[in-house]
Design a protein around this nucleic acid. Structure first.
Lengths: 237, 237
DNA sequence: GTCTTTCCATAGCGACCACTACGGAATTGA
DNA sequence: TCAATTCCGTAGTGGTCGCTATGGAAAGAC
């Protein structure tokens, strides 16, 4: 890649167009967003779209990938940065309440809602796989805390992960159904009460009655906050 | 309506055809199920479909209505028959785990998934209204228990209702994503742990936390299994 | 300038969409 | 039997779908 490319350079910004396509898909879903909707939203013509992004399905996959990186990364960060699985998922749900209702972009989560009832099985399957991968990352994070002793040994990690994913998905639909940020935040807060009593993260003194801290706990106590990436595809479960 | 109708009688059973249309819409959603999909599933030709059911949208509305009555009624019954809101919603979620994964029909809930990303706003809005009505019926049922003293006075009825709806919606999507009955049942069971401690249902010993009787001080104590329909449109929230 | 390369707008492809005009077949009441 | 009435299969409506062939305009290299 030495010389600059020869011919006429393209007259639109590829990343801007991609973001506009993201908004369109996010709002209306894969199937319901037609190519002519896309060209209108992106401000380019159909041949330009096909030259720059391949076909509609390839464009959607690229949209999902950038969405997972730029938005879904919140979830991965919450899980990785927080001391415990409980704090991580609590923060993830709380941030989701904000993200799902934030002005400036469509409501809810693209990975959750954009390929429901999709007649292209590959597309539906692609997002389903991302959702299930995130469920698996929830479960792994919880299981780690169980093994570490931060959660009771009889904790059902799979069920807790699935519940967290279900709440997240329900919050997404309710955001699209008109729920406001505070309402979803209350749901997120309440959902954390289903968690078992949190054991002391490490060497600290004990404490008994269930239902411990909900918010971000000790800034940095023991256990040097696992660098773990843990979630390959961002939020969405 | 005295005399029998004159001409040639229709050669298919209307209710059977309606049920086959229900299965098609349930599986693929409103938008993605084409009229030719419907005629194939129902075993009739397009003109017969239009003569018997009006247009596609009218057929869908009729499908939704019968679905709400025959399937969604489970939810209304659970809410009406159980002693407490907690028991009612607990039973509703547990029955949903079964219904959403039962063989013999598509997975998940038609009212939750069939009009996501729908390009016909009236259809999308119609199911959204049913979901929100069910949320409201959850909230009313919970609020009644709070006023009755069966739940603590500081219970956030709206948030608890919304959480229940979110879990239900998430369970529907996870059923479609492949979750099995036991997994969803575990989610349902776990979700009920978010509920506050249940107070004795009626005239039992006093309780502490402030605030004297607010609402109607439960004239008839334990409230026998309320005949109330309570939910006009069945499950779906 | 000239040539080469690439972009992009017009215009149109076949396929499918929801929906319906038509006419023969079937079943009634008289 | 004869109309009257209704059903339903064939075939086709205009419209939109995802996608692309063509060809002029624009911007580099020389």
């Amino acid at each position: 890649m030495a010389t600059r490319q020869r011919g006429r350079p393209r007259s639109f910004d590829r990343l801007t167009a991609l973001e506009q396509a993201t908004m369109a898909f996010w709002e209306h879903g894969y199937e319901t967003t037609s190519v002519s909707d896309l060209t209108r939203a992106m401000g380019i013509s159909a041949p330009s779209l096909y030259a720059a992004f391949g076909d509609k399905r390839t464009l959607f996959e690229e949209v999902v990938e950038t969405y997972a990186v730029s938005y879904g990364a919140y979830g991965g960060r919450a899980l990785a940065e927080e001391e415990t699985a409980r704090a991580g998922i609590g923060r993830l749900l709380s941030e989701a309440a904000e993200l799902f209702t934030e002005p400036g972009h469509p409501r809810g989560c693209l990975m959750i809602s954009a390929a429901v009832n999709c007649s292209t099985p590959e597309v539906e399957e692609s997002l389903r796989a991302r959702r299930n991968a995130n469920l698996a990352s929830f479960e792994a994070r919880i299981r780690r805390d169980v093994e570490r002793g931060a959660l009771p040994p009889d904790t059902d990690a799979a069920a807790l992960a699935r519940l967290s994913g279900a709440v997240l998905q329900g919050m997404s639909q309710q955001a699209r159904d008109g729920a406001e940020k505070e309402e979803l935040a209350a749901v997120a807060r309440l959902a954390m009460r289903a968690w078992p009593a949190e054991a002391p993260p490490a060497g600290a003194e004990a404490e008994v009655t269930g239902r411990a801290a909900t918010g971000p706990p000790s800034p940095e106590a023991p256990v040097p906050g696992a660098p773990a990436p843990e979630t390959p595809a961002g939020r969405g479960a």
